[in-house]
């Protein structure tokens, strides 16, 4: 399905990113998984990625940092942050910085689907 929008998933926990990828595929999207932010940045999938699903806490570059870097380098990708630890301060800061959604694990399928759809519909230009 080469024309399907690509959803890139970045999470340091293998079980978590494989689970997310499985759910994303069940929505009918293509999913690519990465263990680190650096691995995602080094891949050739940046330009194809319609929506980035990144874990908040990761060793090395965190999800919010990855989003900020993409915005700073002029290649923003609509981003959904996911986390095991809900934190209002992190959430507010991330949403203010233009992150599309902030979801807590375990992921609610309907929420995630709505967020991804919003990413695809809004496109790269929207950030707010």
């Amino acid at each position: 399905m080469p024309d399907d929008p690509l959803i890139s998933i970045v999470d340091d926990h293998e079980s978590a990113r494989e689970a997310a990828a499985g759910l994303v595929r069940s929505f009918g999207f293509a999913a690519a998984t990465f263990g680190t932010a650096a691995g995602f940045l080094a891949s050739g999938d940046l330009a194809r990625t319609a929506c980035l699903v990144a874990d908040v806490r990761m060793p090395g570059m965190s999800g919010p940092e990855l989003h900020a870097l993409l915005v700073a380098t002029g290649t923003p990708i609509p981003t959904v942050l996911v986390t095991g630890y809900a934190d209002h301060a992190v959430r507010d800061r991330a949403l203010k910085a233009g992150v599309r959604c902030y979801l807590t694990k375990p992921l609610d399928p309907e929420d995630l689907l709505a967020c991804i759809r919003s990413c695809i519909a809004g496109g790269a230009g929207r950030s707010g």
Binding site: S15, A16, A19, L23, G84, K105, P109
Partner: peptide
């Protein structure tokens, strides 16, 4: 403990969605 539990829920949801399709993808 939460990490694998959350993954289990997500995987179970994914499985349910694959089963709920008009043509269930049993491999998924």
């Amino acid at each position: 403990i939460n990490q694998p539990l959350a993954s289990m829920v997500t995987n179970a949801n994914a499985g349910l969605r694959w089963l709920g399709r008009p043509d269930p993808d049993l491999a998924e």
